[in-house]
């Protein structure tokens, strides 16, 4: 059996990739993909702990997270489309009317 440390390292790595993606990528759609990666790294942690502790709550939690992630992706894409109609771009650097 694969020890739990492996799963946790992988999920921590995925989480960091997600955070770095959000911070460095300029395309709004790729930013959303990075957010999904962060959510999925949390899912992996939950499942790994659930199997390690022999406790099903973590796996139940994952189903809820997947549903929420799907809803968030749908709303995110809708918002990107509405913004694209107004500004003809999905580049975050060009979305800059509101600033101090």
């Amino acid at each position: 059996m694969i020890p739990i440390e492996y799963y946790l390292s992988l999920s921590a790595f995925m989480f960091i990739v997600g955070v770095v993606g959000v911070l460095t990528r300029r395309n709004a759609i790729i930013v959303f993909m990075s957010i999904e990666l962060m959510l999925n790294s949390a899912n992996l942690t939950l499942v790994a702990f659930s199997s390690y502790l022999g406790n099903p709550i973590g796996q139940i939690f994952v189903f809820f997270v997947m549903t929420v992630a799907a809803a968030e992706a749908a709303i995110g894409l809708a918002i990107i489309i509405s913004l694209f109609r107004n500004k003809k771009t999905v580049n975050i650097d060009e979305i800059n009317i509101l600033k101090w």
Partner: peptide, 29 residues
Amino acid sequence: RSSEASLKYIIFGGVSSGIMLFGISILYG
């Protein structure tokens, strides 16, 4: 302006809730 506000909101919101969820998953562990 309204759609821009919305996009900024969902990016910040998504990232924060992603971070919170990761924290919750460790707390569960």
